[in-house]
Computed example of a mutant assay.
Amino acid sequence: MVKVAIFDYGAGNIFSLKSSLEKNEAEVDIITNLKKIKNYSGLLLPGVGNFDPAITSLNTSKVAFQDLVKDQIPILGICLGMEMFFEKSEEGKLSGLGVFDGEVVILPNKFKIPHMGWNDLQIKKPSVLLDGVKEGSWVYFVHSYRVKPKNEDIIKADSDYGINVPAVIEDNTLFGTQFHPEKSGKVGSMMIKNFLRVCKK
């Protein structure tokens, strides 16, 4: 059984993510300090909360996080968790984790914010996380922001709601989804399974 950790930065509401991982036969701990991460095969940054408070919680572990990236420990960022991978966000004033060049911008004001609902995936490039996921599969979004990577090669799928919203990013052992796989039924469960398979290697 693979053992993974969910980093809790105080936003709560991570039960559904823990439950989804356990249904896919992972052993899951919720942690608040990345310095103890060596016992785990993978890390998940959950998707609830606001940018600056989440970054503040992670800042005490920022060096440990950079070490995880260097050591190629698989990391999955969900929604806000993915947004924190970037250099900055319009939601806050603090610097992001900066593992990807680019920024996070608010959705255009023609949208009701937060944007909530099911949208389909347009798969652009082969992806480990999307292995077995069909073009046009529906996933569940709850967000007000979207990422703008400088290197668009990391975007593996997007979703079109009048503008293209990067939905899945992937680079080596770093994975991110703008949507919530733990709330996306069988399709989301397939992605969780794919991530755990990477953690087992």
Rank of each mutant, 00 (worst) to 15 (best):
23 K>Q: 15
1 M>G: 13
64 A>D: 15
61 S>K: 04
169 I>S: 12
141 F>Y: 14
172 N>P: 08
20 S>G: 15
82 M>D: 07
132 G>M: 03
31 I>T: 00
46 P>D: 07
111 F>N: 06
27 E>H: 03
66 Q>G: 07
91 E>Y: 09
25 E>A: 00
81 G>T: 05
63 V>P: 09
49 G>E: 05
114 P>Q: 07
40 Y>T: 04
83 E>I: 01
151 N>H: 00
179 F>V: 02
32 T>V: 08
161 Y>Q: 03
150 K>W: 04
184 S>R: 08
9 Y>K: 09
187 V>R: 08
188 G>Y: 13
151 N>F: 01
170 E>S: 08
193 K>H: 02
99 V>M: 09
84 M>L: 15
129 L>E: 07
80 L>S: 02
86 F>Y: 08
150 K>Q: 06
48 V>E: 05
60 T>V: 01
131 D>C: 13
46 P>G: 06
156 K>Q: 01
101 D>P: 11
47 G>S: 13
110 K>I: 00
113 I>P: 01
163 I>P: 12
60 T>W: 00
86 F>V: 04
53 P>W: 11
102 G>M: 10
59 N>A: 07
57 S>D: 07
127 S>V: 11
143 H>P: 03
138 W>H: 15
9 Y>M: 09
173 T>S: 04
128 V>G: 07
32 T>I: 07
150 K>D: 09
65 F>W: 09
58 L>V: 11
113 I>R: 06
144 S>F: 12
114 P>H: 08
84 M>K: 08
179 F>R: 01
23 K>R: 15
120 D>K: 06
166 P>G: 13
23 K>I: 09
163 I>G: 03
53 P>A: 10
135 E>M: 10
16 S>Y: 07
100 F>Q: 12
158 D>F: 09
112 K>A: 13
72 Q>F: 08
13 N>E: 06
191 M>H: 02
111 F>T: 09
77 G>W: 06
177 T>D: 10
33 N>F: 06
159 S>Q: 01
25 E>R: 01
196 L>M: 08
65 F>N: 11
157 A>I: 06
172 N>Q: 08
63 V>Y: 13
24 N>F: 11
186 K>R: 14
143 H>D: 08
38 K>W: 10
146 R>Y: 15
119 N>F: 00
78 I>M: 02
23 K>G: 10
65 F>I: 11
160 D>L: 03
109 N>I: 11
138 W>N: 14
75 I>C: 12
101 D>F: 12
197 R>L: 14
188 G>K: 12
59 N>I: 03
147 V>H: 04
189 S>N: 03
157 A>W: 05
132 G>S: 03
55 I>D: 12
138 W>P: 05
4 V>M: 00
